[in-house]
Design a protein around this nucleic acid. Structure first.
Lengths: 159, 159
DNA sequence: TAATATAGGACTCACACGGTCGGATATCAG
DNA sequence: CTGATATCCGACCGTGTGAGTCCTATATTA
C-alpha cells in the first residue's frame, strides 16, 4: 500500500516528458497520451490540474499544448504529487484537525505526523531534472547495477 | 493522499498500547477496542493478522489476549504497516513485475522505486518504544533510548 | 470556416476498504 | 461438566472513491 494515484503517476510521466525535451519545449495532451498509452481525456484533466497548480502553462488552439513554468531542476516530485492528490497526509487527522473517532486517546498521531514530513522530504529531494536523466551513463558494463538493470534493459531492448 | 489504511492505524494504536504497558503485558481485543473506540470485530482481525505476521502472540480462552513477541524497541512502524497493508509500494509495478500499461516506455518507475525505499526507511526508523513515549522525556529513562527519543521529543514539545 | 487544442462539468463503473455476522475452537472458573 | 470468555477465520455487504468516459464550450490557427 501507500501507493500514489494513477493520476499522480500520469502527472509524473507527463512532467518528466516535458522536462526531457529541450527547455521550453511544449507538447499536447494527445501527443503525450499516445506516447505512454494513457487515456487522453484523463491525461488532459491531469494536465489541467497541473496548470491550475502553477506547474504548467497551457497554450490553447491549434498547435497548442503545455510546457513547464519553472526550470526542471526547480520542480520536485513532491510538487507534482501534491498538485494532483492534494497535500500528503499519512493520517486522517492532523495535529490541528481532529477528524477521527480516536483523537482523544490517540497517541499515535504526532509521531506519524513527524514521519509524514520525512516522507514529504524524500519526495521533495527528487527533481524533475533527476527524473529525466536517471539512467546509467555507460550501457555496456556497470558491475553493481547489472544485476538489477539487466532484465529491464532486456525487456526494453526486446520491444 | 498517501494515507495508510484504517486497519494500519488500528494496528499501530494497538501495538503502541501493548508497548506502553509493562514488558510482556497482554490485553484482549475487546479491552483495546473499548479504550480507543475501535470496532471490536475489526480490531480482532487486525490483531489476528499481526499474530500471523509474527509480531504478536495470542493466548486463547478466558483471560486470553495478545502480547508483543519482540521487545518494543525491536519493532518498527514499518513492520506493523507492512504486516497489515502488505509491502509498501509507491508504484503499481516494481522493477521486476511489470504490472501496468506503461511499463515499456515508463522512465518513472526506477526513480520512484528509490523513493519508496527512502519512505520505508523513514517508517523503519521509528520503533514502537518511541511511539509509546513520544512526550516530554523523563530524565530517568534508559540512556540509549534517550539518544534517539530526545530530538524527536524536543521537536514535538516545541509545537 | 473547419480543424485542433485546452477547459471543465457530469456521469458511469468497478473495486477496495471499513465494518458486520456467524460459527468453530480453545481455555478456564465454577 | 458446563458456561463464559477468548481467539480464529471465512463470508458477506454497503459505500466511497478512484479511474475512465462523455459532452459541451471556448480559443487559436491554417
Amino acid at each position: 500500500m501507500l501507493r500514489l494515484s494513477k493520476k499522480a503517476d500520469y502527472a509524473l510521466i507527463a512532467m518528466r516528458h516535458l522536462a526531457g525535451g529541450e527547455a521550453g519545449a511544449s507538447a499536447s495532451a494527445r501527443e503525450i497520451a499516445e506516447s505512454y498509452a494513457i487515456p487522453p481525456e484523463l491525461l488532459a484533466k491531469v494536465l489541467q490540474r497541473l496548470v491550475r497548480a502553477g506547474l504548467l502553462v497551457s497554450v490553447q488552439g491549434t498547435r497548442g499544448g503545455y510546457k513547464l513554468v519553472r526550470d526542471a531542476q526547480r520542480v520536485t516530485v513532491a510538487d507534482v504529487i501534491q498538485a494532483i492528490d492534494g497535500p500528503v497526509a499519512v493520517t486522517a487527522c492532523s495535529p490541528s484537525d481532529h477528524a477521527c473517532d480516536q483523537y482523544e486517546r490517540c497517541e499515535i498521531r504526532d509521531p506519524l505526523w513527524k514521519i509524514k514530513t520525512r516522507i514529504v522530504d524524500a519526495l521533495a529531494t527528487v527533481s524533475l531534472a533527476e527524473l529525466a536523466e536517471p539512467h546509467v551513463p555507460s550501457p555496456a558494463v556497470s558491475a553493481p547495477l547489472v544485476m538489477h538493470a539487466t532484465p529491464r534493459a532486456q525487456a526494453l531492448a526486446g520491444k
